[in-house]
């Protein structure tokens, strides 16, 4: 109400011509200039540069001067066997990460929320956030030393139990599990923050009333806690689904090796190898553009559903 009054107040000057309104705020517009120049130079020009996907790239003519080749790059993409492999890997890795990784931070948040001891709670949270601040380069190294077939802790444990060592990082049967588990390990604490916030927002008197009525912990969990965080869960899930084509470039790039390309090569790593390493700019840009378009459609539709869900569950 106060806000509408204020807008009305400002609108008093609405009769004046546009220019005088704009010049009144000239400093605000000036502040926007660096940001706008940045997005034009580093975001919009690359988007325009996607025209290279419809061209046959010639080094000396660059993006803008190379000759057109129509849809050749896309036809080549859809006809290649690699297309099927990288699509399958991208979708499968993302799908497993959601299926197994999505519930973990929710459970973790529920567990942390049940802790009464503040010092213990804070310590667990701080430790759980730690891996989020570590680069994938380091984590890839931690993973390969932990999973090493000769002196890794996991394989030594297996040896103590009389089992044969497994080369987890170099075996196609295990590599996707390594990706999914290391991703969960890195991000579960960080992802729990949002659920902890939602849990902290539940009015405590609901629990008190339930306690007086003789409700058990489990009943409180099922009838108070879970329904209260369902909107958050739905929105987070939709955001994850929207980003399904991002299977985790930095992670795969730092962890994979030629032995596991068949299960680990995702769209982004393929674009890197074909484009940057083999300098087939036109073709790799076509692969990237295909991904960007599908990703954009996914993100927009998931955000739209999330917006709908948000309104329905909150009001």
């Amino acid at each position: 109400m106060v806000k509408t009054a204020k807008i009305a107040q400002r609108n008093v000057g609405k009769k004046s011509p546009l220019w005088s309104r704009v010049s009144k705020y000239k400093f605000l517009y000036l502040m926007l200039v660096p940001g706008l120049i940045y997005v034009v130079l580093f975001k919009y020009l690359p988007i325009a540069g996607n025209m290279i996907a419809f061209k046959e790239y010639k080094i000396f003519q660059g993006i803008w001067g190379s000759p057109w080749c129509g849809l050749d790059n896309f036809i080549r993409l859809f006809e290649s066997d690699n297309f099927y492999v990288i699509m399958r890997n991208t979708l499968l890795i993302s799908f497993y990460k959601i299926l197994i990784g999505f519930p973990v931070p929710i459970v973790l948040a529920l567990l942390i929320n049940e802790v009464n001891n503040t010092a213990f709670k804070r310590t667990v949270q701080t430790i759980a956030y730690l891996p989020h601040f570590i680069s994938w380069v380091v984590i890839a190294s931690l993973a390969s030393s932990l999973l090493s077939p000769t002196d890794g802790a996991i394989n030594m444990l297996r040896a103590d139990l009389g089992l044969d060592p497994i080369f987890f990082m170099g075996d196609s049967r295990y590599f996707r599990s390594v990706l999914v588990l290391s991703d969960i390990w890195k991000e579960m604490g960080w992802s729990a923050i949002i659920y902890l916030a939602a849990l902290a927002g539940i009015p405590q008197d609901m629990y008190e009333a339930a306690t007086i009525d003789g409700a058990s912990k489990l009943q409180k969990l099922v009838f108070i806690t879970l329904p209260s965080i369902v909107p958050t869960i739905i929105i987070m899930l939709l955001l994850r689904v929207g980003g399904i084509l991002n299977a985790g470039f930095e992670q795969v790039f730092t962890m994979y090796n030629t032995a596991v390309y068949d299960v680990a090569d995702i769209i982004d790593t393929y674009v890197y190898r074909i484009g940057i390493v083999q300098t087939q700019y036109g073709f790799s840009a076509a692969v990237g553009l295909f991904k960007s378009v599908i990703a954009c459609i996914m993100v927009v539709s998931c955000n739209w559903i999330a917006g709908k869900a948000d309104q329905e569950t909150l009001f």
Partner: peptide, 14 residues
């Protein structure tokens, strides 16, 4: 720019 990514290759070339 948040919902549409220019892509690795065009960004690199630009």
């Amino acid at each position: 720019t948040m919902i549409f990514y220019g892509g690795m290759i065009p960004t690199f070339l630009v």
